[in-house]
Each structure stands twice: as C-alpha cells, then as structure tokens.
Design a protein around this nucleic acid. Structure first.
Length: 574
RNA sequence: GGGCCCGUAGCUCAACUGGUUAGAGCAGUCCGCUCAUAACGGAUUGGUUGGGGGUUCAAGUCCCUCCGGGCCUACCA
C-alpha cells in the first residue's frame, strides 16, 4: 500500500465554474483519487476555493455583498456542485480559512528569516474614486500604439502590444470608469525567487516523467531573459491574509495582504489541516502528509491543474517551500491539462457561452459528463466539446456498450434461471480466453491511471466493457440453453461476474452507475480492485441473488441535442 | 516581437528513445445474431501523416523553411 496525496488546482471563488474548469483539474483528480482508493492505497484528496484577490472584491461589490459573505455563499454553491458531480474530496477547504491565514504568515516569516524576502518601494496605479490600487489589467485607456480605446494596462487586445498602465492615453478605472487614476508610491514584499533559480532548475531537471507541457513552461520561466524573476507577494487590498511575519506584525506592511498566488498553494497544506479539524484528527494526522520529517517521506504527491497554473506550481510554490528551509513535501508528479473549447470557441462567462457546472447537472446526471469529459480530456492538446460528439460518445459507450450489456445479461438470466446466479457447468476455453483478455485490459487500464492518462484509461475501460459483449455474442447462451442448459448457466454466471467486475472498476468514471450495479448485485460499495481476472470471473458464486437494475443509461435524443445546442450557444453569434 | 505546443482516415485521437504493409473508436458499407436500451458481434471502405526541401540504410517521428491553429509572455486568477 502506498500513501498518495492528491491536490486539484483551486477553483477561483468568482462564480460557477464551466466544464472546461472541471475537466482541467477537479474531475481528473477525482478519477485518479478514486482509482487509487480502489487499488487499496491510502489517499488524501484535497481541494479548496481560492478566494482572495481583486476579482473577488469586485464581484462581491457588484453583488452588493460584503466580500466575506459573498465568498462564503459561493463556496457553499461550489461545494454543492462538487457533490453533484460526485467529486470525492477528503476535504474541500477555503483559502480564507484561519488555518491558511496562520500558515501563510508562517511561511512568510520563515522565508524572511532565511533571507528570501525584501521590500520594494514602487509605483502602482491608484484610483481615487474607487479608493483602491488597481492591477494593470483593471486600468483601461487608449492604446498609444493603435489608438484602440479599450486597451488594458497590461496589453492592448486589439494590437496585442505589451503595455504599461502609464503608457495609456486617458487612463481610467475599468471598475468605475473614473479618470482619476494615477501612479502612487507603495511598498511591497518581494520573494527572492532568483536566488532559488538553480535549486529549482535542478529539481525540475529530475522530473523526466512530467508532461512536456509542464516542463517546457517551467524552463521558459527559468531561462527567459535574465531568468527567474523575483515576485511581489503582497498587495494593497482589504480582503486577504494580513501581512505578518509569523505571529508578529510586519512594520511598514500594515493594511496590506498577501498576494493571492502566494497564499493559494499554501492552502493545499492548510486545507489538509482543515480536514483534521473537521474530522477530529490530530496535528500529527495531517502533518504526516506534508512534513517529510513527520511521516511524509514515503508519500507520493500528485498535483493536477490547467496549464495556466503551471508556473505557480513549478516555480513559485516550490520557491516558497524550498526557501522556507523547512521539510515540507514537494510535488512528485505534476499533470497539466490544456483547455476544453466549446463548439470551436472559448467558454465565455460574460456571453453565457458554453456549459457551466450547474446547467450541466440540470440536463443530465453526473456520470454522462464525467465519462465524456474524461474520455475526451484535453491532455495532448486543447480539445473541443460539440453536442454531436458528446451525444455519440455517451450513447455508444455508456448506453449501448456498458448499459446494454448489463441489461441483456441480467434480463436473460432472469427469464431462464431467475434472479440468482445460476449453477452448473464448468468454464472452458472461451472463459480462459476471456480471462486473458480481461486481465490485459485491467492491466492497461491500471497503468494508464497510474500515469494519469485519462484518455488512454477510458479507452481501456471501454475495451473491457466491449469484451463482455464479444464474449456473450460468441458464447450465445440463448442458443446453448436449448441443448445444454448447464453450459448456458455457466456462461450466464461468467457474464454476471463480468458485470460485477464492471461495477467495481468503473467507479472512477461512472460512480453512480456503479452504485446502482453494486446494489443490484449486493456488492460492497467500497469493493477493491480484483486480485486477478480469473478470480474476478468467479467472485459471484452460484446461488448469489441479484435484482435486474433499471437501465443504467438512457440515450440522448436528437431533439435534446438540438435544444441544448441552441440553449447554450450564448447571446452573441459565433 | 520572443518562447512553447499542435497540424495523422469524414470526425475524435494513437503510434517508447527514427525501424516490418501508419493503428483504434465513431460515422459509412456488407454479413451474422435475436438475450438486450432497433442494442450486440464479424468483416470492410477510407490516409502520398498541412506544403516544400534536407539528413539517414530507414522519418509521422530529426533538421530547415513556408502555411494554418492554439497557448504563454510574470500586476487577472
């Protein structure tokens, strides 16, 4: 048994996430966590909301709510949606938790003690009307290059030229529209990442099994220009973690908070502490997952995230940990996902384009989404959601291949032998060949999951389901029954055992269907991965009672597909 | 501007460090079966691997170049 720590990138608090967000981190993490539990490993699966930063403050203001209430409300909404998608977090925390406040301040103090923090006095854009400093992106104005009048302070999206807010002609606040914006002096803490560059680079160098997407992004940042740059870790905001040096005040930093990207990864650790608090566990119980001097030396730590998160997980967060001088666990395997697009374009919150988690669950149960999204996960490149492909995949894989297999074997058994695993007959060559095939598929499925390769894993699992139909077709118990009922009983018994095997090993992808099947077959919902295919095919003994379950999956009709395509197309064309 | 990734059958994707006639699913066509959600099984059509050039005994795989798509570029998160 191994111990496996899994963290999914933290979804930002600002609103309901769309399917692209879901498939980029939380969903594959969940499938991976479920698989590892199935294999009998000890798993700690952690996620949390990422609550700080300017967008949260603005969203709260727009909603007319105090930011703390807004975040608490949205955290609850997100939690309910996670339940809806059957995400099996051991704990889903909040980056605004007391635990994270203390731990973030602790890390800052440790980094300062090690000499990796320094103060910088610099100019930031201040909006008099809004009464706040604004990130570059929240300053709009006319582009000095092309004359586009809605250029942002970081870049003109019309001519793509990089900008500095002070370059803009007639700058204004993107929030209030106020033109009373000007540069104003402020003081911030910087993390001396540059001093950790070599250490990070050699650490990355050992990660030869990471996806090329991940290591290439990391190397770019390490080697671009003058190399890894130092990074400001504080901001002039109200909502966030107060800048402190451990428990002590930080002179000159009053009223400031840590930068959201400094505290968010630390929440992975803090959320594990929150898990302990919520479950009556001790300090040692969570620290054994994170401190290599307190039991975490044999933990395998896997992080899963969208590619936008990669620099922070390969560089900033490791810099925080390495620089602290304390033995916290570093990531062992990092999986980055590309983007999911919607009908050839981007998901758009503002245009209502694409499918959001709440809407998805309104129209179909979670298994349908889990299966399609993971079997089409954007692993090697961006992938595209289209209703036609979605309908085809779900109907074929789930309804026809898996659902219909269960249906045909249970109903045939009921009509010929009753709702009980029939006795008689002995396995022969066909069953031996089936066991070989099943073993090969189980092995292929398992090694794909070990490597966090979702597409490959789902293809293997599907092939395992197909093997059931192939077997039944060739064994043809409906014909055999007429001349040799004993042999037909053995075939049906074998097929019922296949269905029971599916109920166990399909759980990472279609947990609800597995629950239905497990109940119909009277199996434990936490059944483990089988010892061998041969053992699995004989697990249900003759005489074991079962019930014929309702059809596991229904098909998506053409009418539904058309209706949904129209509904989620968004307000603008294209 | 700089960097990275991708471009393989109608569609979605495979093909370990270059190595037999480039594979699979879906769709299409034909045949079979009738237990089942008109489901299942078998067979089969289909690609000069974006264009061009080069290295090599051998290239989808390496190099150059062009075309097309995407991402990142550090104060959105």
């Amino acid at each position: 048994m191994q111990r496996i720590l899994i963290t999914s990138a933290l979804p930002y608090i600002n609103g309901v996430k769309h399917l692209g967000n879901l498939v980029g981190s939380m969903l594959p993490s969940d499938a991976y966590a479920r698989f590892m539990r199935l294999r009998g490993h000890e798993v700690m699966f952690i996620c949390a909301t990422d609550e700080h930063g300017t967008p949260a403050e603005i969203a709260a203001a727009n909603a007319g709510e105090p930011v703390a209430e807004y975040c608490a409300r949205l955290a609850k909404v997100q939690n309910e949606l996670h339940d809806g998608f059957r995400l099996s977090f051991d704990h889903f925390g909040r980056s605004s938790s007391e635990r994270n406040h203390r731990l973030t301040q602790h890390f800052a103090g440790a980094l300062a003690d090690e000499g990796y923090i320094y103060e910088v006095t610099e100019d930031q854009m201040w909006s008099e009307t809004d009464g706040r400093f604004l990130p570059d992106r929240y300053i709009e104005g006319t582009c000095p290059n092309c004359g586009y009048d809605r250029a942002r302070g970081d870049q003109c999206e019309n001519c793509t030229k990089q900008l500095d807010p002070t370059d803009l002609i007639d700058p204004r606040s993107a929030i209030s529209g106020s033109t009373e914006v000007f540069a104003r002096e402020t003081k911030h803490l910087y993390l001396k990442q540059s001093a950790l560059r070599d250490e990070i680079r050699s650490w990355i160098g050992t990660k030869t099994d990471w996806p090329i997407l991940v290591t290439s992004i990391a190397r770019k940042w390490l080697d671009d220009g003058d190399g890894l740059r130092d990074r400001g870790i504080t901001r002039d905001l109200d909502w966030g973690i107060a800048v402190k040096r451990g428990d002590a005040d930080w002179p000159g930093m009053e009223g400031k908070v840590f930068y959201v990207w400094f505290d968010a990864p630390i929440e992975y650790i803090a959320a594990t502490a929150e898990w302990a608090d919520a479950n009556g566990k001790s300090e040692a119980d969570w620290r054994r997952w994170w401190r290599t001097d307190e039991g975490a030396e044999d933990v395998r730590y896997v992080q899963i995230m969208g590619k936008d998160n990669v620099p922070f997980h390969t560089l900033s967060f490791p810099a925080t940990i390495m620089g602290s001088g304390e033995p916290w666990k570093l990531v062992d395997y990092l999986k980055g996902f590309n983007w999911l697009t919607y009908e050839g374009g981007k998901f758009s919150t503002s245009q209502g384009r694409g499918i959001f988690m709440d809407q998805a669950l309104e129209i179909l149960p979670p298994d349908y989404w889990r299966w399609w999204l993971l079997s089409n996960a954007p692993e090697s490149a961006d992938s595209d959601f289209t209703w036609e492909v979605f309908q085809g995949g779900v109907n074929k894989d789930l309804a026809d291949v898996l659902g219909n297999f269960v249906s045909r074997v249970t109903k045939f058994c009921r009509s010929k032998f009753g709702e009980v695993v029939p006795e008689g007959g002995a396995p022969g060559e066909a069953e031996a060949a089936l066991a070989v095939e099943v073993q090969a598929r189980l092995d292929g499925y398992a090694s794909a999951m070990e490597a966090v390769e979702m597409r490959k894993a789902t293809a293997e699992l599907r092939a395992l389901w197909v093997a059931g139909n192939e077997y039944l077709q060739h064994a043809e118990p409906w014909a055999v029954f007429k001349t040799d009922p004993e042999r037909a009983a053995m075939i049906v018994r074998t097929a019922l055992n296949l269905a029971a095997l599916y109920a166990t090993v399909s759980r990472p992808f279609v947990p609800d269907a597995c629950d239905t099947l497990a109940e119909a077959f009277g199996l434990a919902p936490d059944a483990r991965w089988p010892e061998s295919a041969e053992a699995a095919l004989g697990a249900l003994a003759a005489g074991h009672a079962f019930t014929v379950p309702e059809n596991l999956f229904r098909k998506i009709t053409d009418e539904e597909r058309e209706e949904w395509a129209a509904r989620f197309a968004g307000e603008a064309e294209g």
